[in-house]
Design a protein around this nucleic acid. Sequence first.
RNA 1: GGUGGGGUGGCCGAGUGGCCGAAGGCGCUCCCCUGCUAAGGGAGUAACGGGUUUAUAGCCUGUUCGAGGGUUCGAAUCCCUCCUCCACCGCCA
Length: 428
Amino acid sequence: MLDAKFLRNDIEQTAELLKKRGFDLDVSLLSELEEKRKSLQVSTENLQSERNTRSKDIGQAAKRGEDIKPLREAMNELGEALDKAKEEFALVTEQIKTISDRVPNLPHESAPIGKDENENVEILTWGTPKQYDFEVKDHVELGEALGGLDFKSAVKISGSRFIVMQGQIAKLHRSLAQYMLNLHTNEHGYTEMYVPYLVNADSLYGTGQLPKFGDDLFNTNPATEEGVGMSLIPTAEVPLTNMSRDVIYDETDLPIKMTAHTPCFRSEAGSYGRDTRGLIRQHQFDKVEMVQLVHPEKSFEALEELTGHAEQVLKNLGLPYRKVVLCTGDMGFSATKTYDLEVWLPAQDTYREISSCSNVGDFQARRLQARFRRTGAKKPELLHTLNGSGLAVGRTLVAVLENYQCADGRIEVPEVLQPYMGGLTHIG
RNA sequence: GGUGGGGUGGCCGAGUGGCCGAAGGCGCUCCCCUGCUAAGGGAGUAACGGGUUUAUAGCCUGUUCGAGGGUUCGAAUCCCUCCUCCACCGCCA
């Protein structure tokens, strides 16, 4: 959520910034609602103030033993006026909230301006795609041939976009997650977290999945009138970042760096037909997530650092990748700046997203009321949140299978993973 | 899941319809006293929002005693629903 002041005092400029990311802010509607809000709020509060003083008078009169009946009757009219004013005020407030809840974050000035993914800007590439003197297979073919990826069983058990893994490939998948977690906790200073996979609506609102992206979530029954049903997490960013909800940290507590390995569940209602083959787009996938809660003046620095942590995983696995900075039109709802890491997939002869690292600024913190107090200061301030995948485990498995395939269909185990695989050097 | 008891300011804790945004204590800040230390005396000390404003100053004002709803001229206090914590019982990886 943006600072309400932006929408009140700087609405033109705010609208301009939002336009960069392809978001049309209805300035005239919002200004009109704001105008209404202001006058309604003042008049409502005046009525409340009058009610309060007159109620007090009644109390004192009663104490003196006077007849308070006429005073009470005189209040009825005021009561009605107040009820009406409150109702109108609530309506306008709700309308403003409905709009502002759906307004994305403002892009940082360093984010390139562009319309869609085609205008993302490549920052660097790392590693050189291997040359193969045989025809490369994709991970589906490789995995099925090895008996490790079982799409058919997954369809029977659950449906499309699920996977059953078994044997060495299941183990490789687990090893990848273990390796990432160990790297981040041992080398990068993150605290390992274990978190719930079912979360309440407040948490989803806090990180920005609700109200706008509810369709992408798997919800448990019952989603009653009050909407108390819980949802499966689409990313560990939700539980991790919500750790900070309604907390005031000491300045010296920051930065707080957390990592967790969790399954992620996405209904991706709008994406049927895309990436239908293989493990690229699943309803359930594992991810190692990194979240940082930082001092507002250090969040862009922290973004570089956090992205570096994700890159380190790819480097250590020897997977060629490229780093792009997302243009304003391709950034996620909450982000103010985002780097994507794209791993080389030889069978597709292209780079595919495997990590997304964002500085969210104070956008989530405002919804979360996640704050800190400067040493010696009285007022708490909003902190900044960041999140990034480090990495998506399923896609990393795809990358390992495809990049480390041998002519005979076996898979070489990347060196750093061999200890996790009991010293195994090849699968198959 | 059942029964019983709780959820009040940074913390502890009083408060069953108006004098309660909230006693008292602890903590914290400032001042005084005391030649150090210890002790003592005094004052202050919730959050969030709106209006005004150059202002995160001041002033005016609203809301908040787990959350939401209700009764009432008036609710921390009464009623309803929910959440949550504790104890015991049942069930359970």
